[in-house]
Design a protein around this nucleic acid. Sequence first.
DNA 1: CCCTGTTCCTGACAAATATCATATTCTCCC
DNA 2: GGGAGAATATGATATTTGTCAGGAACAGGG
Lengths: 236, 236
Amino acid sequence: MATPFHNPSCHHCKDRFSSIFCKAEQCNLDQIAEAKVCSVYRKGQVIFHEGAYPFGVYCVNDGKIKLSHSGDDGREQIIRLVKAGDIMGYKALLSNERYTATATALEDSSICFIPKDLFLNILQKDASLSFEMMRILSSELRKAELKITHLAQKPVRERLAETLLFIKETYGLEEDGHTLSVRLSREEIANLVGTATESAIRLLSEFKKDGMIELEGKKIRLLDMGEIIRTANLQE
Amino acid sequence: MATPFHNPSCHHCKDRFSSIFCKAEQCNLDQIAEAKVCSVYRKGQVIFHEGAYPFGVYCVNDGKIKLSHSGDDGREQIIRLVKAGDIMGYKALLSNERYTATATALEDSSICFIPKDLFLNILQKDASLSFEMMRILSSELRKAELKITHLAQKPVRERLAETLLFIKETYGLEEDGHTLSVRLSREEIANLVGTATESAIRLLSEFKKDGMIELEGKKIRLLDMGEIIRTANLQE
DNA sequence: CCCTGTTCCTGACAAATATCATATTCTCCC
DNA sequence: GGGAGAATATGATATTTGTCAGGAACAGGG
């Protein structure tokens, strides 16, 4: 299972200015810093499971995580990519229901756990934290609705290009300025796009043939951003 | 344009126990009751437009409204059906961006408008109201993510059956216990399902032939709920 | 190092769905 | 009531996408 380790301090967390907690009042931050438990999860490890009851909220200190639904026939649909500074598991907590998604580490990650009672308690007291929470929820909802529209209306080719851009937005590029700084299997890419693995593979090959990208194992280099954006056919 | 009329009182609103405002403190409710402006919108009228800036939040006193994105190629995707007691326009307000959806009345509706400053102000002060707001956002997000999974993984036939169930859940049935109490065009149904209008029409005909539903103009009667549920193939 | 299981890739084919064309029916307005 | 325009219905066809099959490349463990 996950390995606990010396808690990194919230006050020195490298994401303390970008995460939701940058809005929290100092005294509340102190409480969180004291109560939280941090653990290291290895690549592939599950942080929480769809169907389980939530006991708190997770704040990613470092690493990359995917959140996915397991569809009826067992196929996975990735609904969110989580990065350092992001929190996860709040939806289930707020609506007091079970997790609707499974969180799996895409690489070794260190993740802090904040107990339910404390988090909800602080949320009640700290208006600016709860406002920030609403902002996050609104923005996720907006993205989800856009994704619904695109799934319903855009062909796989456009959605794949869009997904590449989305991965870049989320996790950024490596030092070379081209390579996506996350390693995803073709199946994971397909599950992000919402298509069959073979279709994703085929289209990636096409993109490569067209000079838009370069493939080397799980490395994906975005060569022609202009053409990728054009292929994604975004208007909004 | 919309016709203003004598404001219905929040304190006697038939939805005061089910809407988000049932959680608000009394004094805040008073403020809202005083500041709000209510208007009647005729069927087909637009309440707010995608791309416009929000000046407040809308609370539906009576009627039925659709919220839709206009896709790149002009095809509409319906992302939410709104009923009496629901609020709308909060996403744009909270994230301080423009509307991402257009709200159109599906039938004559009376809708209250609550100015932005007041709403945000009260949200800051009233912890239980803002908690309720988070609950609503979480639940919408959950629904949106489920829809993403289904769009990506389920065939149109199943999604259509699911959509019929969804319409029933949202707007309920008429007195006969079978007829959906909303009149939607075939195109609107298709835009809810995320498919071509012709496909929706064809499948509705099939459902009818199979005895699951009965069609009479825009009236849809759900005859065999068991079979509809089975066709929707819901597991979650 | 080799073996084994997994992932990746490509081709052939099948199924699902969209598109186009054309009736038919409905609706609303004069 | 009659006519114009829209909505609905249905068939034929094209396109997109998924599925299946088989081989190549790769990764990890003994």
